[in-house]
Each structure stands twice: as structure tokens, then as C-alpha cells.
Design a protein around this nucleic acid. Structure first.
Lengths: 105, 105
DNA sequence: TTATATTATCGTTTATTTACGATAACCAAT
DNA sequence: ATTGGTTATCGTAAATAAACGATAATATAA
């Protein structure tokens, strides 16, 4: 993309855009919903519920984890992914704050 | 990206992910803030406030317009961009609805 | 109608994203 | 130690995104 100009913006703007990027694929939105609805949250179950290969799902999970919207803890040979409540609240607040700036919302 | 699997998801999920994608660059978040603060909203003024070339800003505006977060109306030789309140409300609601699903928010 | 100002689009380059198969790494049993 | 189940990573291909200069398109003013 040529040279990125991202560092010309505030860290708040960058963080918010990173959160938005994490939400910018329907599979990742679906994954968040799945994690919310399931008690069991191992990767295999998520893969079964998505029309994507295991490697692809793993990549999506990695991106959600990167911005902190989910976390994974080791559970024997499996890995249990869950929503990261604290960061979800933080993200929601930041989005609220942005939209509230706009008179309309 | 190989063949896209986006159409395997609901239209709600796709729309939400499109809105998120529109917000997934700090320049576009900044543009929304600028449009909210300025009464005059011609492209030139926006370009002056960003560390990006005119062509690049025009591209970002196009993407924001594509998902309906802003709209542009012709004003003589200029074009006046403004926030699209109705769609911003819709976007905020959809995001709220998503986060509210999660017990934490 | 010719110039001036404003914005969009074109063409191009580089980077990132999406998607997958194949393989590696990991852990718990046997 | 070896096997079996689980997940991450590697390598790769194709698509999209980001950025810009140059140019086209548009509309007003002269």
C-alpha cells in the first residue's frame, strides 16, 4: 500500500480503527456470536459452525485475539476461546463515544 | 484472497462488517470527526486537515459514502460532504445490538 | 469560450487480507 | 516412546486496500 501513514493519527484513532478492522469480516462477527452462545469454545466446534477451513478460522481467531476481543486459554490438548469482557466493554465505550460525538447519536 | 466466502453469512453480518471496514482506517475516523466539527465540509478543507494527498482523501471519502456514513451534495464547483445522520444512527444501533448480545455490555 | 478552481478517476506500486493444504507443534493418553 | 486428537504456523495464490501523481471531468467566473 505504499508507505503507511497510520502513525500520523492519534493512538485512540488507531486503536479504534484496529477494533473496527477486527470486526470488518462477517466470519469474525459470527465467531464472536458463537463464542457468546457456546459454553464449550474449542476451535473445532467453531470450525464446524463456519464454512471455512480450520487454518482460515485459526487466522481469524488470531486477529480477534490480537486486538483483545477474545482470549484463549489452554485446556489440555485443546484451546478454549472466550470473549474478553473487559476489552469488549472498552471497545463498546470507544465506539459509543465516537458516535455520541456526532449530534445525531 | 482466493475466492471470497462472504456470501455464506447473513446480510446483517455482511452489512455490519462493511460498516466496520469503513471505520477500519484512522483517516476515515478522523474524516468523520472533521465533518462533525466543521460547518464547511468541502473536500479541500478536509485535505488540508489530513496528512494525505487529495487523491487518497477522495478515495477514503468514496468508501465512507459507499456504506452511507456520509453523503455529498454538489455546491457549485465544490462538493459538500456531510455526515449521514440516519445511517449513522442505524450503524450505531447495529453495533449496540451486537455488543449487547454479549453479556458483558 | 476560455480560463480557474475543485474533485473524481485512472494507472501504478506496494502492502495487506483472505483462503487453503500441508506440515509442524503440542498435549494426553496408551 | 508412540500414537491420536487438536491447533498453530508455513507457504502460496489471488484479491483487495492504501497511497500517490497525473489526468479527466465538472462547474463557475471572466
Amino acid at each position: 500500500m505504499a508507505i503507511s501513514k497510520k502513525d500520523e493519527f492519534t493512538s485512540e484513532e488507531i486503536w479504534l480503527s484496529d477494533v473496527a478492522k477486527a470486526l470488518s469480516h462477517p466470519a469474525r462477527i459470527r465467531i464472536l456470536k458463537i463464542l457468546n452462545e457456546m459454553n464449550s469454545c474449542m476451535v473445532g466446534s467453531i470450525v464446524d459452525k463456519l464454512p471455512l477451513a480450520q487454518a482460515t478460522v485459526s487466522q481469524h481467531l488470531k486477529e480477534l485475539k490480537k486486538v483483545g476481543l477474545i482470549e484463549g486459554e489452554i485446556d489440555g490438548p485443546k484451546i478454549c476461546y472466550c470473549l474478553h469482557s473487559k476489552n469488549l466493554i472498552k471497545a463498546k465505550s470507544a465506539l459509543d463515544k465516537l458516535f455520541t460525538k456526532f449530534g445525531c447519536c
